[in-house]
Design a protein around this nucleic acid. Structure first.
Length: 427
RNA sequence: GGGCAGGUACCCAAGUGGCCAAAGGGGGCUGACUGUAAAUCAGCUGGCGGUAGCCUACGGGGGUUCGAAUCCCUCCCUGCCCA
């Protein structure tokens, strides 16, 4: 452990910017600190992992982490970092999403410890009762439009062709009001967030100073980038979620395994609790024997364990070993089923593959290996489809009972590393 | 309310009567090479069907025409300027 959480975050490269005095505050006092989370989906994805880790570190060093679900602001949409207006969610949708998010946060944060328990609050609780006149008088009065227009998030949208609505323009004030409310009710004096939140955070700090004459602080995290220049956390099958129903532990593990050499050390600092020495060791491994992918394996193991637990990790590792190490031939249907528990799979009624069988292209669409038959056909033609790890060359190939291991299980592969399990079921 | 400029595939962006399923770029997918990495090179990238064929598509609707993303009418949306 470092001397303070500030030092910890600093060596991990997690401080993009912080208001003056933040370091001193964190070294001197135990405070309450909050981060807002977006409730537009029932699950968090890996993009939220960095803010979560920031709260984790805060709690480890004795500060109180507060996660604020944007149940109210989610109904508005934050213009920061967005180039377009966002869809507005209903109250019911947001309620539902909050449940899922809470469950995920509980894997990282301790909500029960006596001294500095984590807290999850919903800003809908104080935003929805607001009335317009009161808000304009008590909050709006403290902001000039001139001030708001200088904020980066607003400025960029003003340059664009499609502009910004009054609704999103007002977002900043609501977030400032969040901060004020948490300051009043929870004695929360610091807000963290992504670097795109800087403008919103300072707006809150200014508001607290004006109406309470008190000093508040802000710290923003860097944007997680990858060397390839694509958006972090996206794969061909979409975002990488923390919810095992949306992204299986196997896929989750694979996402981290595939980390670029150039990113992996930074990710270890961001997303694991490994210490300086361990990470330095892994850094050396990347430089000296990159082909062993030791850093990637460690990263994948640590993060998967944290998010999905020991058991799911063991399964993901086993499946990965089999698929990318050994050969599948020789394994029984039961083995395969167990290994492939988390790999995308589909169940096909026995009669569909009986006799003449079913067209491979149809099967691929069914399993999700292709989005249409045309695409499936293209994939086969370009040599990207394998049955039991043997390349298929015939676009008219049909799949029959005989193709299945023990007549029940078939391994379908698309490309180098996308596996699908097909099971036959009687009836 | 008035004037002007726009709305093209996942994104940007060409195309202004047939040669347009729609240039180019980005992104994505597949292949080769590799270390489940990167870089590089190649192919593919609306749907359905046996690579000839059909269907759906250029903001919505209607029309002109043998034929429209391209011309006309109308409606909707966005930006800028004026009131």
């Amino acid at each position: 452990m470092e001397n303070s959480v500030y030092e910890e975050l600093a060596w991990r490269g997690m401080i993009y910017d912080a208001t003056e005095g933040t370091r001193e505050l964190l070294e001197k006092e135990k405070i309450a600190v909050y981060i807002g989370f977006d409730p537009t989906a029932p699950s968090l994805h890996v993009g939220s992992l960095l803010p979560i880790m920031a709260l984790v570190h805060m709690q480890r060093y004795g500060h109180q982490p507060i996660a604020v679900a944007g149940g109210g602001t989610g109904m508005i949409g934050d213009p920061s970092g967005k180039s377009q207006e966002r869809p507005i969610l209903s109250r019911e949708e947001i309620e539902f999403n909050l449940k899922g998010i809470k469950a995920q946060l509980m894997r990282f944060l301790d909500f029960d410890r006596p001294q500095n328990p984590a807290l999850l609050v919903n800003n809908a609780d104080w935003l929805l009762p607001l009335n317009l006149i009161g808000f304009l008088r008590d909050i709006g009065k403290h902001f000039t439009v001139n001030y708001m227009l200088t904020k980066e998030s607003v400025r960029r949208r003003l340059q664009q062709d499609n502009g910004i609505s009054f609704t999103e323009f007002s977002y900043m004030l609501l977030q400032a009001y969040d901060f004020l409310t948490l300051y009043d009710e929870r004695n929360c004096v610091m807000q963290m967030g992504g670097s795109d939140q800087w403008g919103n955070i300072t707006a809150g700090i200014d508001l607290i100073r004006k109406v309470r004459g008190a000093r508040a602080y802000g710290l923003v995290l860097p944007l997680v980038t990858n060397a390839a220049g694509t958006k972090f956390g996206k794969t061909e099958s979409g975002a990488v979620w923390l919810d095992p129903k949306r992204t299986s532990p196997y896929r989750f593990y694979q996402f981290w395994i595939n980390t670029d050499d150039r990113d992996v050390v930074q990710y270890l600092k961001y997303f694991t609790l490994l210490g300086k020495e361990e990470i330095a060791e892994l850094e050396r491994a990347v430089a000296e024997e990159p082909e062993k992918r030791l850093a990637q394996r460690t990263l994948a193991r640590e993060v998967t364990r944290m998010v999905h637990g020991e058991e799911a990790l063991a399964k993901a590792e086993k499946a990965s070993r089999v698929l990318f190490g050994g050969d599948i031939a020789g394994l029984s249907a039961d083995d395969l089923r167990d290994i492939f528990r988390d790999v995308p799979h589909a169940v096909i009624p026995a009669e569909e593959v009986a006799g003449d069988g079913m067209a491979l292209v149809d099967l691929m669409v069914r399993v999700g290996a292709a989005s249409s038959k045309s695409e499936a056909r293209r994939l086969i033609k370009s040599g990207g489809v394998y049955l039991a790890n043997k390349r298929v060359t015939d676009a008219l190939r049909r799949v029959k009972t005989a193709d299945f291991v023990d007549g029940e299980v078939l391994i379908l592969r698309r490309g180098q590393k996308n596996y699908y399990l097909v099971q036959v079921k009687d009836g």
